[in-house]
């Protein structure tokens, strides 16, 4: 659930999503859900010539299971905080 929370803090940021079929989509992150399905607005596909079907698409929904990477702005994540939160969650899980 931690990564889900991270993504929730990233809404309205511009991110680059790389899919497992090597399609790279840049867009504004509008929402995520618990499956890490992603909703992107105002998208731009790199190498549009190779993916001509994407030219007329402005917003899209990407299924979490097909995402390989999400590139996020480095200053949008406090890694120290994330580290602490990870330890805390791990601790909570062992207690249970």
């Amino acid at each position: 659930m931690l990564i889900f929370s991270v993504f929730k803090t990233l809404t309205d940021q511009t991110v680059i999503v790389e899919l497992k079929n090597d399609l790279l989509i840049t867009g504004v992150l509008k929402s995520v859900d618990q499956f890490l399905n992603i909703r992107l607005d105002n998208i731009q596909v790199s190498d549009e010539a190779r993916h001509p079907h994407m030219i007329a698409v402005k917003n899209c929904f990407i299924r979490g299971s097909v995402v390989r990477y999400v590139q996020i702005p480095a200053d949008a994540v406090d890694t120290q905080l994330l580290e602490d939160a990870t330890r805390r969650e791990a601790l909570n899980q062992t207690k249970r």
Partner: peptide, 18 residues
């Protein structure tokens, strides 16, 4: 089986150079 669901911009669709 779904990879991506995209909303088609109907205005932009008319200008697609294909």
């Amino acid at each position: 089986n779904v990879v991506l669901l995209g909303e088609i911009d109907l205005d932009r669709e008319d200008e697609v150079p294909l």
